[in-house]
Amino acid sequence: MTERPADEATEAFVAVRNLLFTVAYELLGSAADAEDVLQETWLRWSAVDLSEVRDARPYLVRITTRLALNRLRSAQRRRETYVGPWLPEPLLTAPDVSEDAELAESVSMALMVVLETLGPTERAVFVLREVFGFEFDEIARAVDKSPAAVRQIAHRARAHVEARRPRVTVSAAEARAALDTFRVAVMTGDPQAMLDVLAPDVVLLSDGGGVKQAALRPIVGAEKVTRFTGGAMGKAPGVVTAETVVVNGAPALALSVDGELDAVVSVQVKDGLITGIYIVRNPAKLTRIAEETELALR
């Protein structure tokens, strides 16, 4: 095998690193697992003969996808025994991500939750095709399927996601307005203000990972959600503060107790009302809130 200069390998990898991370994260829902996949991708890439590679971008995406698929299959077995709902790991993202509608939608908590309902191969095909725009032939090589099979999988996955994903595009300003109202209601403990900003059929999911207290099942309905949030705030062991941040390309709340990050709250908004609330309290999933994560679709 012909060796190539380390700087040449590094340059090719770094050029698409943010893309590779985004692919791995959207497949796995875990930044920690995505970083592990990138390390494995680099190790494999550093041993490849560049003369055998016509285009580094799809080649590296193929390696990343295969590694992520292997990890996702193992992760799904672990998630079957997870305590309570499993939510994706929230990422602090730059404010301008929310202005990129395509990127913001692709990493939104609402879509990431829907992706969890797909099988590993369906998820990979959907993400590579619908989010990153790869051709069927490229996807086929990444998932070890025929192009014809990939087309069928893509059709099924698209129908599955479309039936469950939010159908209304909400501006960052509209989402922020609803979130601000929600934040004030939470901090003041005003149940009527909370009811006014919640859709009647709002659904709340909370992820404590068996480490922090959280609802073990989805909470459905404005009144039940209001009681739950009010009760949770009442049981807080210290002074609670709420900071508005940009998480997964959308406005969210970082809740701290006595200055320590305790939870990240993301919301789904439609017609000015909150239809979905995602609360992540598992400490292992709150490590990417201190520093912005760079994402890319191309």
Rank of each mutant, 00 (worst) to 15 (best):
M1K: 02
M1N: 03
T2G: 01
E3Q: 09
R4F: 15
D7K: 02
A12D: 06
F13H: 06
F13Y: 15
V14T: 14
V16P: 07
L19M: 08
L20D: 02
F21R: 00
Y25E: 02
E26Q: 14
S30P: 07
Q39M: 12
Q39K: 14
E40M: 12
V48N: 01
D49H: 13
D49R: 10
S51N: 09
E52S: 03
V53N: 02
D55G: 00
D55Q: 08
R57I: 05
R62S: 14
T64M: 05
T65H: 08
L67Q: 00
N70S: 11
A75Y: 00
Q76H: 02
R77L: 05
R79V: 11
Y82N: 03
V83A: 15
G84E: 03
G84Y: 01
T93C: 08
A94S: 14
D100I: 15
D100Q: 15
A101R: 14
E105V: 03
V107P: 11
M109I: 13
A110Q: 14
M112W: 08
M112D: 13
V113T: 12
E116V: 04
E122A: 11
F126S: 01
V127N: 02
R129C: 02
F132H: 15
F134A: 05
I139Y: 11
A140E: 06
A140V: 07
A142I: 03
A142Q: 01
V143C: 09
K145A: 07
K145L: 11
P147A: 04
A149Y: 06
I153Q: 08
H155W: 07
H160Q: 10
A163C: 08
R167S: 12
R167A: 12
E174L: 09
A175H: 14
A177V: 00
A178D: 00
L179A: 13
L179S: 13
T181D: 13
V184H: 12
A185L: 00
A199S: 15
A199N: 11
P200E: 10
V202A: 15
V203D: 06
V203W: 04
I219E: 03
I219P: 02
I219R: 05
V220M: 02
G221S: 07
V225A: 12
T226F: 04
G230S: 05
G231T: 09
G234R: 02
V239P: 00
A242W: 05
A242D: 10
N248H: 10
P251I: 13
A252Q: 11
S256M: 10
E260M: 05
L261I: 12
D262Q: 14
V264Q: 12
V265T: 13
V265R: 11
S266D: 11
K270Q: 15
L273D: 02
G276M: 12
I277P: 13
I279S: 06
R281I: 08
T287V: 04
R288I: 02
R288C: 02
I289M: 15
A290H: 09
E292D: 10
R298W: 01
